[in-house]
């Protein structure tokens, strides 16, 4: 059913505040789920260090793992200085 107020909104091009509410909700629910908790981050960091250490010598204390948020993307940024390449033992 098309109500009078909806009809009027259509004429005036005015936006219903509930549409804004819905958009904000959909957006925040997606973001809420992307939020990583501390233990997940620490575990992830350990795993990454283990994998990288197979190939490079790294300083385990100077690395940092961050979640960076932009308007449309969420990125994981892992930063570590490489000390040297590990020699593969034959």
């Amino acid at each position: 059913m098309l109500s009078i107020s909806r009809l009027l909104r259509r004429f005036t091009g005015q936006k219903a505040s509930k549409d804004t509410a819905k958009k904000r909700l959909q957006f925040s629910l997606i973001y809420d789920k992307l939020e990583l908790n501390d233990t997940t981050l620490t575990d992830l960091q350990k795993d990454i260090v283990a994998v990288i250490s197979n190939y490079f010598e790294i300083n385990k204390d100077s690395l940092e793992l961050k979640v960076k948020r932009d308007d449309n993307v969420t990125a994981l940024v892992f930063n570590t200085p490489i000390l040297q390449l590990k020699r593969k033992r034959a």
Partner: peptide, 13 residues
Amino acid sequence: RGEMLSHEDVLEV
């Protein structure tokens, strides 16, 4: 009046 989320909106979300 479009001031409150309808139940359809809530269910969809």
